[in-house]
Design a binder for these strands. Structure first.
Ligand SMILES: Nc1ccn([C@H]2C[C@H](O)[C@@H](COP(=O)(O)OP(=O)(O)OP(=O)(O)O)O2)c(=O)n1
Ligand SMILES: [Mg+2]
Length: 897
DNA sequence: GCGGATCAC
DNA sequence: TATGGTGATCCGC
């Protein structure tokens, strides 16, 4: 069996290989959209109707394997029915040959390799392994089901084409044209007319222009977006003062109290509102906005990046302007039925499932929540269900046919659908013996104030549902009246679903996925995995080509393979997605874990310039740190070569730092190490970044002085144990191409505070700030011959001049400008470069001293690793609600003037 | 703990 | 004229 599958699969591969080679003559020009016609499928029937083979040919007509990661994502709202092939062809043509493209090809190859490894691995699984994996997966499913919480109503509000909408509002003439916001290098977003051409966020403007020649590109006006965002937030605050904004146009709200009764609610709202306003005001005053860093350089294109300080704590989804509202419903009793399903590896791929009612419990408010938790644990240990018959080991497996088509039916019927019966939750007390599993749908949920048995429950439920819809409509309407901008909303029992729902009726619409398990399962059944938060380009490709899963139900049906292929974390995440489960807790604030600044520029390949840029970044970062009263124990740099290869390096300082020079002293070492590593080739960069991590919430450090051992950690008070970590399914190829490091490392953390400071002072003085003659000249020297690109790192600094290239290898005296100490050094003999490196080493380690002042970083410590266990459940644990959050903080942005 | 990779927005 | 910025998580080593 296995062999058959393998055979089939291989054959497909071969066919594909054969196809993508011929027809290189295809005339590309036919693919260029020179007209103003949108690239919708129906207007290009000829292309669309081409046979599959033809399509493949077109995609590969460049005689190279298709680079699928460069394809347009049409998963976005407003992009249905586009002629993908044609659009992708244009994108490909515009990109081919660029360094960016070459790098994408390289990355695609790595992914492909990873996929092949997984496929190999999968082919080696034995039946026994699969059977066991199935059991393990089912056990997890059972636990997840037990934790399913339908008692919350989460609303996800998403502003429509936000930036574009704002621009159109302020210039109505744009409404009738396809337009986008951003610059010719990168677009932030586009209006819906432009989307008909395939133009979307994240696409370079010049390519968008090829897709849509008439595209109007408007530059961003973040101040406007921010201001309007505040107006929107004022409306949101009326429904939930604890709403959680995720970006300028996205946030989560909890309107439980609002729905519950207007009175108490109103009161609270009043208070809240004030607080919120203040908050907003404050942030606003700081002048920082969601992350955009607009380089106002004339030549520089504005790029959009909305997030700078978005703490992004939430793991739940967050797409655009969405607000999630959690509605507590007056739930009564809930019963959970569980079923155990065993898969028997039957020849026909059928799985046998046995159902069993396992647990019964009630939800309600927080109290019930706890109960639920208890049950969870119980459930976990309750594997008794083993009684279910185990597999009949006889079979031969592969219950999972690789051909999705044929298998789909059976699997759907036998597996995915069946799970419907698993762990269902019903409201009301009906009861239920094992059978009711299947029809449980009837009384779902919450809302009803009715208690058991109440017939009127249904009517009340309807009323509740209507109320929810109306409330959300009202909220959207208020936003529109106030801002003249439309918003879309998704309402569901958890964040994951709410997000998907908000996209459903996207432009100016809303969708309510009611808190009933069967409805959720129906909703999720055909849901493309790519729509799930955390599943992006790569994950989708892996799931598609390895597991042959495109939808949630297909993913569920391959849960046994998942167990064998991916990490436990990833599996749990995938299972949750496939079951339509997600976080129901809007846990708000997680403290920020890092702060960084990075920028792209025209190639920089000379050490002095590298350092100057680095210093600049450190200065920026220092300002941000100060603005937030933070210090960092970990300092890192990020480098991206002109070939788009990215490198990151970090060091842990012996004490937290904040000042520019302190940051720079660490960053510089890392940078110099890299420069030396690439030597004798110059380090040719297109981007540089500096990052601060292991942050300490300290008051401003006295310029230069003692960081008193401040016990910043009052952290105890607020137990934030929650934080859900969303996606766990990202696998990493991991380090692999770490070139031959040159062991230059400096002993990190061995420097005493005094030494580090002194060191930094010295270095900074000499290298950047200072007017040191020899160096200052360097920095002001703008016109560096481009022919120097091929020179060595530490090229002679003009003293002896000459082509620095040769200078290094020559015997004649050569002068270098040491990037560390800033001094000019002349070497006469032998290998000047070697000597220079030696000098740099000495220079770098010179100040290192064993003594250390330890600052207990205690505080931050672990907060990260929350086991997946703790995640989700523990929902509302009350605390949350009262805990003060600082949601606005995540929107504070770096606003470079 | 580090560095690469992936993802969101 | 030529593909962004910020923050986070996961995983293999
Ligand atoms: N690669 C990306 C994608 C998005 N964003 C930012 C800019 C967008 O304005 C914002 C929201 O992203 P969406 O994809 O949700 O786009 P819109 O809100 O503009 O459109 P819509 O929600 O109608 O689909 O996030 C970004 O900076 N970089
Ligand atoms: Mg949006």
């Amino acid at each position: 069996m296995a062999s058959n599958e393998e055979f089939d699969f291989l054959s497909d591969e071969e066919n594909f290989e054969n196809d993508w080679k011929f027809d290189e003559n295809d005339d590309i020009s036919t693919y260029i959209n020179s007209s103003t016609t949108p690239l919708s499928a129906d207007t290009n029937k000829e292309v669309v109707n081409l046979g599959k083979a033809m399509t493949i040919v077109a995609e590969n007509n460049s005689n190279e394997r298709k680079v699928s990661r460069m394809d347009l994502n049409t998963t976005k709202a407003g992009m249905d029915g586009l002629d993908k092939d044609k659009i992708n062809q244009i994108i490909l043509e515009a990109s081919k040959g660029s360094k960016f493209y070459e790098n994408e090809k390289k990355r695609e190859k790595q992914v492909q390799k990873r996929i092949e490894e997984l496929q190999r691995k999968m082919a080696s699984f034995t039946n026994e392994q699969k059977v066991k994996a199935k059991q393990a997966a089912d056990k997890i499913v059972q636990e997840l089901e037990q934790g399913r919480d339908l008692s919350r109503t989460i609303v996800h509000v998403d502003m429509d084409a936000y930036y574009a909408a704002v621009e159109m509002r302020d210039d109505p003439s744009l409404k009738s044209k396809p337009m986008a916001v951003g610059g010719s290098a990168m677009l932030c977003t586009s209006n819906y007319l432009a989307r008909r051409y395939g133009v979307r966020a994240g696409m370079p403007g010049f390519i968008a222009k090829k897709l849509c020649p008439n595209l109007t590109i408007v530059r961003t006006n973040f101040d406007k977006y921010t201001k309007i965002s505040h107006e929107i937030r004022e409306v949101l605050a009326e429904y939930d003062r604890n709403f959680l904004p995720m970006s300028l146009d996205e946030a989560y709200l909890d309107i439980t109290d609002y729905l519950r009764g207007n009175e108490g609610q109103n009161k609270r709202m009043g208070e809240v509102k004030e607080e919120e306003s203040k908050d907003i005001e404050g942030k606003h005053d700081t002048g920082k906005i969601a992350g955009v860093k607009f380089e106002s350089t004339d030549t520089q294109e504005n790029v959009c990046a909305e997030t700078k300080e978005n703490d992004k704590t939430k793991t739940e989804n967050a797409k655009d302007a969405k607000f999630i509202v959690r509605v507590k419903q007056e739930t009564k009793l809930v019963e959970v039925k569980q079923e155990t399903s065993k898969i028997e590896a039957l020849p026909n791929h059928d799985f046998e499932v046995t159902k069993q009612v396992k647990v019964e419990r009630a939800f309600d408010d927080d109290v019930t929540k706890y109960k639920q938790n208890e049950k969870d644990s119980e459930g976990t240990h309750r594997p008794n269900r083993t009684e279910a018959q185990e597999t009949k080991g006889d079979i031969e497996l592969e219950p999972i046919p690789l051909k999705a088509e044929t298998a789909k039916h059976e699997l759907d019927e036998n597996s995915f659908n069946q799970q419907k019966g698993e762990g269902m939750i019903t409201v009301g007390q009906s009861e239920a013996q094992g059978e009711s599993d299947w029809d449980f749908g009837h009384g779902s949920s919450e809302n009803d104030t009715s208690f058991l048995h109440e017939e009127p429950a249904v009517a009340e439920q309807e009323m509740f549902y209507n109320k929810v819809e109306e409330v959300v409509k009202e909220m959207r309407r208020k936003i529109e009246v106030k801002t003249q901008l439309t918003a879309s909303a998704g309402i569901a029992p958890n964040m994951f679903l709410a997000k998907v729902c908000s996209d459903k009726n996207k432009p100016n619409g809303q969708f309510y996925l009611k808190p009933e398990r069967d409805k959720i399962m129906d909703f999720v059944r055909e849901l493309p995995l790519r729509k799930a938060f955390g599943i992006g380009r790569v994950s989708e490709q892996i799931l598609t080509s390895v597991l042959k899963a495109n939808t949630c139900s297909e993913l569920y049906d391959r849960r046994h393979l998942m167990q064998l292929l991916f990490t436990p974390n990833a599996c749990t995440n995938y299972l949750e997605i496939s079951l339509g489960l997600g976080s129901t807790v809007v846990d708000v604030d997680r403290e920020r874990k890092s702060m960084s600044t990075e920028t792209t520029f025209k190639e920089i390949n000379k050490p002095e310039e590298h350092l100057a840029k680095c210093h600049e970044l450190c200065q920026e970062l220092s300002e941000s740190l100060k603005a937030h009263r933070l210090t960092a124990r970990k300092i890192g740099i990020k480098l991206k070569t002109i070939n788009f290869e990215v490198k990151t390096r970090v060091v842990t300082a012996s004490f937290p730092v904040q000042q520019t020079e302190e940051l720079f002293s660490h960053a510089k070492k890392l940078l110099v190490n890299e420069i030396r590593s690439s030597s004798p080739e110059p380090l040719r960069l297109r981007l540089m970044g500096v990052r601060a991590a292991e942050l300490c919430e300290k008051g401003m450090v006295n310029e230069s002085k003692q960081p008193t051992i401040i016990s910043l950690m009052k952290k105890n008070g607020s137990v934030r144990e929650r934080s859900i970590s969303l996606n766990a399914s990202q696998a990493a190829e991991s380090s692999k191409a770490c070139g031959p490091e040159q062991e230059v490392s400096l002993e990190h953390g061995s420097m005493s505070r005094e030494d580090e400071v002194r060191h930094s002072e010295i270095c900074s003085d000499l290298t950047v700030l200072d007017d040191h003659p020899s160096t200052s000249k360097e920095y002001t020297n703008d016109h560096v011959p481009s022919d120097q690109l091929g020179c060595h790192n530490f090229h002679g600094n003009a003293k002896t001049e000459r082509s620095s290239n040769q200078a290094v290898s020559r015997e004649e005296p050569t002068t270098f400008n040491c990037p560390v100490c800033g001094r000019d050094l002349t070497f006469r003999s032998g290998n000047a470069l070697l000597q220079m490196n030696r000098h740099v080493d000495t220079c770098l380690s010179k100040q290192a001293v064993p003594g250390v002042l330890k600052y207990d970083s205690g505080q931050q410590t672990n907060k990260a690793k929350q086991s997946s266990k703790k995640r989700k459940r523990e929902s509302s644990k009350n605390t949350n609600r009262t805990v003060k959050r600082k949601p606005m903080d995540r929107f504070v942005t770096k606003h470079t003037k």
